[in-house]
Design a protein around this nucleic acid. Structure first.
Lengths: 210, 210
DNA sequence: CGAGGTGTTGATTCCCTTCAATTACCGTGG
DNA sequence: CCACGGTAATTGAAGGGAATCAACACCTCG
């Protein structure tokens, strides 16, 4: 999450289908259950991978930012929907599958494979967070995820709503709001605005996240 | 989860390191943080992939059964420990990495790739379950996961303890016990013993799982 | 300026956890 | 074979953290 725009060199344009395509905020890029004929590379913007329950509950499995791939599936259909959180540019590629990819040694294949493995790791971390951490710990982990590494007191800009954050962290919007308020009270973060937060104490946040 | 023993043909013995190795119940097969020099194929038995928090909490990210691979990592070290739940036989292979694998088109590569992708899907499903489902729903999903498909009223044998189940579902042992008791009261399952459960109504369980 | 979505805060409820006690189970050894 | 010990599992009572319900504040944009 939270990366800058990509340089065109790594797109592998010859294999791309069509040019860069733009999606406005809240537009769906691919639908859960649809045939996964393509996978997608994000050039810039932010995408949420989400799935809906029959009764209206929603869950966001991951946020994807510039340089991330999504839509590489082990089954014929997309397992989750992908929706633009804000204005987002992407490139489509023909569906990737292990059998043919194992033979073709291209830069793109390597990138997709690496992305797959990192995605699996992240999903496992996410499950761990949701399985065994309380609200404060989830928020701390989320804020750290959103921050670029290396900065001393990073300023993070949240493109997503509190509802998105709640559906990502398995909480309610109220609990997200209250937990952020507590982190502020404790002096670990400061609000520039509701969507802009400065992390004042990375060490303490990492400790909470555990 | 819950598969029978494997046929030797699919092991790809030429690439295996050493012969089949046996691990007794509760033995650790690989340690979180250790250098991931190998990945592992399970021949028979059951393995839990788990990670511990500094304060003693534990989380089980997945159970691995015959035919499953684990230990294929995107980083140099194992992200989770792997422990035998019961007596388990495994084969070790030299660590797999995307770069070399992309060139080598072998049966094993294909299998590992497929396993990677399915593992990622399962981790996402798991996160969804932990993020947005209550205790009863988690148990229903778990029982369905443990049952072999196709059977009308499957009898499942749980090799793991209630603690293992709790750490997999992000609950306490007490809540696991109580939720199973409720499913029994509702006539959806029947206990042969604490570790043997018959699923009496798959349709209802699937409905709960949602 | 007003409208509507977004976010925060307060009061109450409820589901799961925690703490505690009892029961069931299983291997061991008399 | 059965008594014994220890772990595993169940069940009960009480407490707590997040959800729910409700009201209000804050932007953003027409």
């Amino acid at each position: 999450m939270m990366r800058g725009p990509l340089k065109p060199q790594i797109f592998d344009p010859p294999r791309a289908i069509g040019a860069v395509r733009h999606f406005a905020a809240e537009q769906t890029i691919c639908f859960e259950g649809d045939l996964a004929a393509h996978f997608v590379l994000i050039i810039d913007g932010l995408v949420r991978g989400c799935s809906a329950f029959p009764d209206g509950r929603r869950f966001i499995g991951a946020f994807y930012a510039a340089g991330d791939f999504f839509g590489v599936e082990s089954r014929p259909a997309y397992q989750t929907s992908a929706e633009a959180v804000c204005g987002t540019n992407v490139i489509f590629y023909p569906a990737w599958n292990p059998v043919e990819a194992a033979g073709a040694e291209t830069g793109l294949t390597r990138q997709v494979l690496g992305s797959l493995m990192r995605g699996a790791d992240q999903a496992r971390d996410h499950a761990r967070l949701l399985g065994r951490c309380n609200a404060i710990e989830r928020l701390a982990a989320f804020l750290l995820e959103c921050s670029e590494p290396g900065k001393e007191r990073p300023l993070i800009t949240l493109e997503m709503t509190r509802r998105d954050i709640a559906d990502y962290l398995g909480l309610t919007v109220e609990t997200v709001s209250r937990s952020l308020a507590q982190l502020k009270r404790d002096g670990l973060i400061a609000f520039v605005s509701a969507r802009q937060i400065r992390l004042l104490n990375l060490a303490a946040l990492r400790l909470i996240k555990s």
